[in-house]
Amino acid sequence: MFQIIGIVLLFGLVFGSYLMGGGKMDVILHAAPHELMAILGAGIAAFLISNSMTVIKATAGGFGKIFAGPKWKASDYRDLLSLLFLLTKTMKSKGVIALESHIEKPHESSIFSRYPKISKDHFAVDFICDTLRMMTMNLEDPHQVEDAMEKQLEKHHHEALEPAHALQSMADALPALGIVAAVLGVIKTMGSITEPPAVLGGMIGGALVGTFLGVFMAYGLVGPMAARLQAVVNEDGAFYKIIQAVLVAHLHGNAAQISVEIGRGNVPSVHQPSFIELEEALTQIPNEA
């Protein structure tokens, strides 16, 4: 919502100030189509040249994140802590054997099925199950497990940030591409040097539109979108850090409730449930779970 408001304000204030200063939109409107073709077209072409198909598809999907915001809400963090509580409690009270059916076939697990949104996130489920599977194979050194989880998180986060980096690279290129379009306009003007001053002035004005559009799109649109996408990815990444915190705390021998309390401390402040809220969520879990 705020992104749409920001875009409306961007266009309204920039072009409004231009009109209030006595500027005419005719020159911009006349030059914009072919200048945008040169600048934005070249920017997209450079984007395609410099990125893999995986990053291109992820960037296209990333525009939804820019406007929708982070995937995980406050209720999802409570659900994650409740899920981890159930898993660690089962492992402590019933042993490794009781946990195997849940981590080998999580899509059939009565524990995972209680939290459908988390179950649909393949990385979250695989991250939890792979770590618990390591524990069932007697890898119980908290430091080794934490190191292995950290490497998985770093790889996942690096890959998730690639679309934001690709967009930022495109934003960095747009001002230079605007200069390219402006130079082409100057070349065109110099080829018509015998025309009257009024005609030459219009041609120079059209050429400068290229420089304006390159800088405007870079710092007003594409750059802020890249920054927003990076912020969303970073916030979503905090969700997976909680999994690491809880499971490592469990390996240190803490009770299930203590482990999830340690995890609660890692929840972003804006989504962090209070101690009472988490306790209420845990007490609402049926005994048969």
Rank of each mutant, 00 (worst) to 15 (best):
F2Y: 09
V8N: 11
V8S: 13
L10A: 03
F11T: 13
F11I: 11
V14W: 08
G16V: 05
G16Q: 12
L19W: 07
M20G: 04
M20W: 08
M20Y: 04
G21W: 06
I28N: 00
H30A: 08
H30G: 06
A38P: 00
L40T: 07
G41I: 09
I44N: 05
I44T: 11
A45D: 07
F47M: 11
F47I: 04
L48V: 06
S50E: 15
S50T: 13
V55R: 07
A58E: 12
G62K: 00
G69I: 03
G69S: 09
G69M: 02
K71V: 14
K71Q: 14
K73V: 05
R78C: 09
L83F: 01
F85Y: 14
S93I: 10
I97K: 02
A98H: 03
P106S: 01
P106Y: 00
I111E: 07
Y115F: 10
H122L: 14
H122R: 11
H122C: 08
A124T: 04
D126C: 03
F127A: 05
I128Q: 06
C129K: 04
C129W: 03
T131V: 11
M137A: 14
M137W: 13
M137H: 10
N138L: 11
N138K: 10
E140Y: 12
Q144S: 15
D147M: 13
A148E: 15
H158I: 08
E159L: 14
E159T: 09
E159C: 07
A160L: 08
L161I: 14
H165D: 11
A166S: 15
Q168M: 13
D172W: 12
P175H: 11
L177Y: 06
G178N: 04
V183L: 14
G185E: 04
T189G: 14
M190D: 01
M190L: 00
I193W: 03
P196D: 12
L200Q: 03
L200W: 02
G201Q: 03
G201Y: 00
I204F: 05
I204N: 05
T211G: 04
F212E: 10
F216S: 13
Y219F: 13
V222C: 03
M225I: 10
K241L: 04
I242L: 13
I242S: 13
V246T: 12
V246W: 05
V246G: 02
L247W: 02
H250M: 11
H250V: 12
G253W: 09
A255G: 15
A256S: 15
Q257C: 02
E261C: 11
I262H: 01
G263D: 01
N266E: 07
V267I: 10
Q272F: 05
Q272R: 10
I276E: 00
L278Y: 01
E279W: 00
E280Q: 09
A281S: 09
I285S: 00
A289H: 01
